[in-house]
Design a protein around this nucleic acid. Structure first.
Lengths: 342, 342
DNA sequence: AAGCAAATTGACAACGTTGTCACGCCCATG
DNA sequence: CATGGGCGTGACAACGTTGTCAATTTGCTT
């Protein structure tokens, strides 16, 4: 004789056991006011005893919200996106929301269709949009039309009332460049980030500002386009390093490209940091695993995502759009940079 | 005058527009039989015109399934888990299932509570359990009790009827070890994986088997415990390399530890691969970003997850447990290994 | 002790699907 | 010409919550 599979308790079971109406149980579960403390305790006790968990589906259907939040991203480096995921997850967990990750495929129209498909199919309560998706005016408009609350993580210049969380990319890049200048470097190469990312332009602007501030002429030949990938960083660095009057330092717009630059240096037999300084941006895991360890800008990726999720949840609760936020960064000096060689 | 927010179409709207009962629309949407082709087309046309998307919640509630699949993991390296995620995501997308990622916190009882909390709160249709969670008999039992279909990805020896997808860890480790032996190495260090992972034991067994097959004595002093992290690999390698008669090659049970070993070698001034060969396992992103690039075992992480998800969906459709599967691996020889130095 | 407002509680109708079952209709069978 | 069995369809009751609103109880004021 086998034990029957224990039917899942429902709200009615709890109500009956506690001798109250289901509505009262509902009130307790949702922390609504106007329930006597004694009643609340009694219900809570039964809930625990029966191991009762409200049905998400029923709740969504009746309450017109799904407790589901989407997190969409395009194609970032694994180390970066995992930090984002965990930041958002952590905040979701606090409020018993669930997080639905979605890697967006395609660009332009196709990307839009992909996102809207997700939004239409799963009735998300809100969305976290990471760069560069957050930089598509079309997408922003489409989301507005669906009147779906969302928060953007990462900087961008799309004028929009939606709150966002970002950091001072330009400032950070400027500071890093000045650090290199401070080490005596004058020929400083720069690898630009993916052109789709607004941050790429900001970082480049910071680099330029630092040069200008120190009376160093900006030269196109010290700047190369990259795409935030290891390979693109390696290729760009090879070009930078094989020209006459090659730079004595390379500042890449993210760590993956900086790691690529390191690889390029190794392959060209250039010692880092003795003959070449290399700096990155983001301070992801890779910065600590390459040799020499990367000097980089620490970006609070986890906190960025946590904060964005926090804003979103606030937004869902209050209905009003909260203030956007800017988080801090800091330079992390490791072994890949040094005083310029003679 | 503002345009009213376009109310989301529901099944009834479609039914009315098509001049049929809602049940017929439901049948069309779910590919049920017994609908005239003409009717089907008419309904489909209206669905498209109205941009109708069934409500997930209503569907779950009425149909007693959520179209939600959970993916739980503990604390793997970012590069690894992202591959897993994308493999599972890809398969889910094909069948319009959604994937809920969940990083499990804690160990033992706490881990169990965490997982069961997820299962109880969200009415998942199925679960994908990665190692080492899949190796907890307690957890397996608890999931059975909830009669939740699940698939294990990664090897383990817990006897259980649940299907799983794995690869031949022992065989792969043996092959890699033999490759090193073939390069002339006799003193081969080995860094064991996290003791919680069954695969760690398998890989160690493969290493031992290879030594035995070639008449090389197994020595404890060439083996160190690691924890699948970069740091642990670095520490273990330092110990291995600073003893008398240090190994001429180190085989680490995953790429992160191998990268750590590389770092240790750099810090000790030991050239790789001239004075020391280093091999890893997994072939994650890190293997291609360190210098020199790592020789490693390519593990089909993406496919493992894709296949596991596939089995799970099959299971949900047919109700029967499908055959478990074993996927292939292959050695990837890069620049971190070479013929032993004299 | 009555009167009234506020606090507490409950009955019942949504919410948007799917499952069950019954109803015609048409065709093959005897 | 009755009979039976698919097929195509629809009516209606679930599914397990929350929202609305009315009913009841409590506590305070006079």
């Amino acid at each position: 004789m086998t034990k029957a599979p224990p039917r899942r308790a429902k709200i009615q079971d709890v109500a009956e056991a506690a001798g109250v109406a289901i509505k009262t149980v509902s009130r307790v579960l949702n922390n609504e006011p106007n329930v006597r403390e004694e009643t609340r305790q009694r219900v809570l006790a039964i809930v625990k005893k029966l191991n009762y968990h409200p049905s998400l589906s029923a709740r969504s259907l009746a309450g017109r919200r799904s407790f589901l939040i989407g997190l969409i991203y395009e194609n970032p480096s694994a180390n970066y996106i995992v930090d984002v995921q965990h930041g958002a997850m952590a905040r979701c967990r606090e409020d018993r929301f669930q997080l639905l990750m979605h890697q967006v495929t395609g660009r332009g129209e196709e990307m839009e269709r992909d996102v809207l498909g997700l939004v239409d199919q799963t009735h998300l309560d809100g969305l976290i949009v990471t760069a560069p998706l957050s930089e598509s005016p079309d997408l922003m408009r489409a989301l507005d039309r669906r009147s779906l609350p969302f928060v953007r993580v990462a900087p961008n210049d799309v004028p929009h009332q939606t709150p966002f969380v970002d950091m001072d990319d330009a400032g950070a890049a400027r500071e890093m460049t000045e650090y290199l200048v401070g080490l005596g470097h004058r020929r400083i190469g720069f690898i630009v980030g993916h052109p789709d990312h607004f941050a790429s332009g900001q970082r480049l602007a910071g680099y330029k500002a630092a040069l200008a501030a120190h009376g160093i002429e900006y030269q196109d030949r010290y700047v190369r386009q990259g795409y935030f990938t290891f390979e693109s960083g390696m290729d760009a660095a090879k070009e930078l390093l094989t020209q006459a009057d090659a730079p004595t330092a390379i500042f890449a717009s993210n760590d993956d490209m900086a790691a690529g630059a390191l690889m390029a240096a190794h392959e060209l037999g250039i010692n880092v940091p003795e003959r070449l300084s290399v700096a990155g941006f983001d301070d992801t895991y890779i910065a600590k695993t390459v040799w020499p360890r990367l000097t980089t800008v620490h970006q609070p990726t986890y906190d960025l995502a946590y904060t964005a999720t926090n804003l979103l949840l606030q937004m869902l609760q209050t209905g009003a759009a909260p203030q956007s936020m800017r988080l801090g960064y800091r330079l992390v000096c490791r072994a890949s940079t040094a005083v310029v060689h003679k």
